[in-house]
Design a protein around this nucleic acid. Structure first.
Lengths: 244, 244
DNA sequence: CTCCAATTTCTTGTATCCAAAACCGGCTCT
DNA sequence: AGAGCCGGTTTTGGATACAAGAAATTGGAG
C-alpha cells in the first residue's frame, strides 16, 4: 500500500522511457492500446497471460483509466478476452476459432486483392516484388513473419475499401501468435523433416505477384483463395498447436 | 454548475427508470452500450447526432466512465464515430462506405447461410417459413424491417461460426438507419410508383427458403448473393439517400 | 452589417479515490 | 485427510475531481 505512493506520477512525467511513441495531443488510451497491441503481436505477451490494469498503468506512468480503454479496444480487435470482474487475458484461440478466421479470410482477402489488383501502381508492384525476394531469401522466422505480413497487406492496400482492409488486418493480428509458433517450428524442422511447406508458400507468392503484374483481378483472387485454404488445411493437420 | 450537485447519484440508486434492463452484476458499461445501441437502431438517435457523455450519464444515472466505454464499444461496432477531444456522433455512412459494406456482406453472408443450411433443424425451418409469411403480410415498414432482419439472421443462426455471425449482425446494425429511411420511402411510394421493389424481395425470400428446406447449401448461397447484390444496386440507384 | 478575435463556456481526457467482487490462504469440521 | 468455510488481500468497476483542449459567444474593427 505504501508502495502506491510511488506510482503517483504527474501528467507531465517526461520520464525517460522509450515505451510507446506518444505524439502531440494523442490520448493516452491510444498510446496504451498501441503499447499492448505491439506487446502481444511481438509475442512478449503470450496467449493466455493475464494482464493487470495497474501493472500496465505503472509501466506507462498513467492511471488505470487509459489502460482500461485500451483493454476494451483490444478486446474488440480480438486480441484479448475480457471478463467482467475477472480481468483480461491475451486471447487464446482454439482450433475451431482459428479455422473460422481462416474461412472468413478465404472469402474476404480474395475480394480485397481483386479490388486492389487493377489499382496497384507500378511503384507498388516494384515494392511487392522486392518484398517477395526478401521473403525468399530470409531464413529468420521472425523476419519471415514480418515480411510475409507486409507483402500480403501491401498487395491489398490499393483496394478502395478501408473498412475491409481494417478487418483483414485484424484477422492477421488475431492469428499472429499462432503463425509465430507454427513458422518457428517449421524453421526448426526445415533442415531435416518438412522441406516443402515454405517453398510452397514461395510459389504462391510468385503466382500472386504474376497475376498482380498482369493486373488480373480474377486470377489473383483465385490464387489467393487457394493460398489461404492451403494454409487452413495445414493448420488442421497441426491441430496439436492448440492443445498445449 | 450548482446543478452538478443534483447529478450526484449514489451507486445504489434504485431510481425508478425503465431505461435499460440492468441485470445482476452486469457492468454498467454494458448497460450503457445496449442503451445507446438500441437508441441508434430504433432511430431515436439519427445519423450525425452528437452524443454527449454527460447527457447519457445523467439519463442512466451513472458517471461518464461507463458511458465512455460504451461509446468505444459502439465505435468498434461501427455505429458511432469517435474523434479524440471532439466527441461522438452517430455514424453517418456515405454512399461508398455503404456500398463497401454491402460488398463485404455479399461475400460473408453466402458463407454463413451455406454453413447454416445443412444444420438447420426442422423447427428452425418452420419458424423461418412463419417469418417469411409474416413479412409478406406486413405493411408497416418498421415491422417489415424488424421481421426481415430476424428472417435473415435466423437463416444464418445454425452456422457454427460465432465470430462470423457477430460480424454479420454488425453489418446489419450499421446499415439499419438507411434501410429504415429507404423502406419507409418505398412504403410511402408503394401505392403509386414503384410496386416491384418489395415483391422482388419476397420472391428472393421464397427462393431462399426453398433452398434451405432442400438443405441445398450451394443454391442458398447463390440466391443470397444475388439478393444482396440486387440490394446494393438498388442502393446505387438511390444515392440521393446519402446526399441529404 | 460582416468578419475576425479574445474570452468564456462546455466537453472531453485523465488522475485519484472508494466500494465491492474475486482470489488466496489458513482454519475448521466431518 | 479432504472439503468447505471464513477472513485478509488484490483487483476490478465506478464515482468524483480537475486540467486542458474545442466550441461558442460576445466585443470590436473595418
Amino acid at each position: 500500500m505504501a508502495v502506491m505512493s510511488i506510482s503517483r506520477q504527474h501528467p507531465e512525467t517526461p520520464a525517460a522511457d522509450g515505451d510507446p511513441a506518444r505524439l502531440d495531443g494523442e490520448p493516452l488510451s491510444q498510446v496504451a492500446t498501441r503499447y499492448l497491441r505491439e506487446a502481444i503481436l511481438e509475442g512478449r505477451l503470450g496467449a493466455g497471460v493475464r494482464i493487470r490494469q495497474e501493472a500496465v498503468a505503472r509501466e506507462l506512468g498513467t492511471s488505470r483509466i487509459p489502460v482500461r480503454e485500451a483493454l476494451q479496444q483490444l478486446e474488440n480487435e480480438g486480441l484479448i478476452s475480457l471478463s467482467p470482474r475477472i480481468g483480461a487475458r491475451v486471447a487464446r484461440l482454439d482450433f475451431e476459432e482459428s479455422a473460422e478466421l481462416y474461412r472468413i479470410r478465404e472469402e474476404l482477402e480474395p475480394l480485397a486483392i481483386a479490388e486492389s489488383a487493377t489499382r496497384l501502381t507500378d511503384a507498388a508492384l516494384g515494392q511487392l516484388r522486392e518484398l517477395m525476394l526478401q521473403i525468399e531469401r530470409s531464413d529468420d522466422p521472425a523476419l519471415w513473419l514480418l515480411l510475409d505480413r507486409r507483402f500480403h497487406l501491401a498487395s491489398y492496400a490499393a483496394a478502395p475499401m478501408p473498412r475491409l482492409l481494417k478487418m483483414i488486418e485484424g484477422f492477421w493480428n488475431s492469428t499472429q501468435q499462432y503463425r509465430r509458433i507454427y513458422y518457428g517450428r517449421v524453421a526448426r524442422e526445415r533442415e531435416d523433416a518438412s522441406p516443402q511447406e515454405l517453398p510452397m508458400t514461395h510459389l504462391d507468392h510468385r503466382l500472386l505477384l504474376d497475376a498482380l503484374e498482369r493486373r488480373d483481378a480474377v486470377d489473383a483472387g483465385c490464387v489467393l483463395r487457394t493460398h489461404i485454404r492451403r494454409t487452413r488445411l495445414a493448420l488442421a493437420r497441426n491441430q496439436e498447436l492448440f492443445t498445449q
